[in-house]
Nucleic acid binder design. Structure first.
Lengths: 155, 155
DNA sequence: TTATTTGCAAAGTCTTTGCAAGCAG
DNA sequence: CTGCTTGCAAAGACTTTGCAAATAA
């Protein structure tokens, strides 16, 4: 589990925060810590994080979780992913290509989300960065269609 | 405007619907028509569509718009896109590579969305289809990072 | 000290659902 | 006819916001 190289870890948090004029707080640290500890379980929503906090008897409020996730995303420590299931989900912005370069296949019939490991985007990213001046920290690729199950069951 | 080849047009709607056991209704036809007429303006939300309907003195209710967008997506006639701005957006599933293969650059600081025309995904799609049995109708690619404006203003 | 941050509860936004009436096939 | 659809209003889910108290630097 700990073989993943995070682009940013809890130890870099204070620096990242003050760099942008924000303060280090135990709440922010604890929320980021949850992502590090659960790096095997991607795609956590605010509610997921909140549940884990309550199990740990933490006093952190849900609004604080939302604010922290927003902030950590803005700092590039987390990335927001969206499966159209009604809530924003987040994962660590990891440097591990196995994680960094996974794509999502979303069935438009049954809404199932399938992960797919494969990448061809480095070249594209470099090209975009050059042409647009955009500094890319992460990408998200989704393919929409019918999963093999739904294709079998008629169409 | 009409040079875009839609994968499916209003004329195919009846067939696509009955194929899946759904009925053709004036509401569904009218809502799809709006996307065809506004094919230059991508990314319409349910609310956007509803506003256009009201301007045309249409009696179609908002709930019906939501239901139609859902259905048209399920049929692969529309595609859902998501910019994390809190609402689901849709566009025609067009065969025009200029539209089909545009990507989105999303600034995690100012939330700006920049469109970028370029593609390298055909190969990847073919590979995924083969390995997973997934029938891909469309894809969505988003790059997250800092836009050139936000990079200039400190960071 | 002083501006930022937190927790709570209330408010807001987007979306879904229940149901009777209306329609398409 | 019969089951799918619609429109409305109410409910629901997720997220944001106002504010006083707490706190990091």
């Amino acid at each position: 589990m700990s073989e993943n190289r995070q682009l940013f870890g809890v130890s870099d948090l204070r620096g990242k925060l003050s760099e942008h004029g924000y303060k280090m707080t135990p709440q922010r640290k604890e929320i980021l810590q949850i992502f590090v500890e659960h790096s095997d379980y991607h795609h956590m929503s605010a509610e997921d994080v909140y549940k884990i906090l309550r199990e740990k008897d933490s006093e952190i409020g849900l609004a604080t979780v939302y604010r922290a996730l927003d902030l950590l995303s803005e700092l590039g420590i987390l990335v927001q992913v969206d499966f159209g299931d009604g809530c924003a989900r987040y994962e660590l912005n990891t440097a591990d290509p196995k994680i960094h370069h996974h794509h999502h296949l979303i069935c438009i019939k049954c809404k199932k989300v399938i992960e797919f490991e494969e990448d061809l985007l480095d070249e594209l990213e470099a090209d975009i960065a050059e042409k647009s001046g955009f500094e890319i920290l992460n990408h998200e690729v989704k393919f929409f269609g019918y999963c093999s199950d739904c294709r079998k069951k008629g169409d």
